[in-house]
Amino acid sequence: MPLVDLGAAIALGLRYFTIIYLTGLGGLFSERSGIVNIGLEGMMVVGTVMGAWGTIAYGPVAGLVTGAAAGLLFSLVHALATVTFKVDHIVSGVVINVVAIGLARFLSQLFFGQATQSDPGIPDFATINIPLLSSLPLGLGQAFKGMSPVVLVAFLMTIPALFVLNRTRFGLRLRSAGENPEAASSLGVRIWPLRYAGVAISGALAGLAGAFLAIEINGLFREGQTQGLGFIALAALILGNWQPLRLMAGALLFGIAQAIPLRLQDAPVISLLPEEFIRMIPYVITIIAIAGFVGRVQPPAAAGRAYEGAAT
């Protein structure tokens, strides 16, 4: 039976992939514009609570929209602090994460009448079966049965992401703001709107991912449900060298790792470990991946640096 377990693990891993990949893509736009964003986790948290609210009120599609909108609005605080007020990007990101926990409690109290969770069983999406792949033998087809349509959307997001980043004027300018804002500015490109846009995209995608987590994985909003996934997305971004396709590979690795404690706890070798140690696996894999690869990647040159404006 282990192969059926593997199929189920991949199925769940693809759902976690969706969260990590969408959030990582958001982080990619923010960091390629020059704004380091470790507030992704907090933006995702706001997405979970507002996504759950939107879903309960108007259904899962609306939930994704409200989650993304809430993430976007919240991310503007980070943009305001880092771009306009030139606060250190990591300091602002840390504060964003601390504030998000309180904000989520507050909103949860407001909308669900309790601070730490919504009622369970919020409506989710109708699932789909991927033709051909879902009839793979040995139980592996399990991986592609009952898939959330949003997972497919996440994979397809790669195309517009690559197109915008590499084939549009906006993408070129965004990247120039992250590589050499002084040079870009001397050519007449205004830096701050690009950086605001980069951060806003990251907030919207992190919020969307948070809503997906609430709707399609947990079926409710619960305090602490993001469990560091925003930081794992950041790790995938580093592992992916700030490139969408490599980011996708990293997100797949971390996504499947997330599913190990939940679906492969009875697999050979793993089952020898106590349950609590199995739960450490995704974190350990993330640390090893980051420590092993980080020296070989190249972050955007101006990421983390405030743009001081044209010299007078």
């Binding site: 470790i38 950041l234 580093i238 980080v294």
Partner: peptide, 18 residues
Amino acid sequence: TGAHEVVTTIMMNGIAVS
């Protein structure tokens, strides 16, 4: 290795809880 402490410490938090 240059692994950013923000990512690794968060992961260590998760491991500590378990």
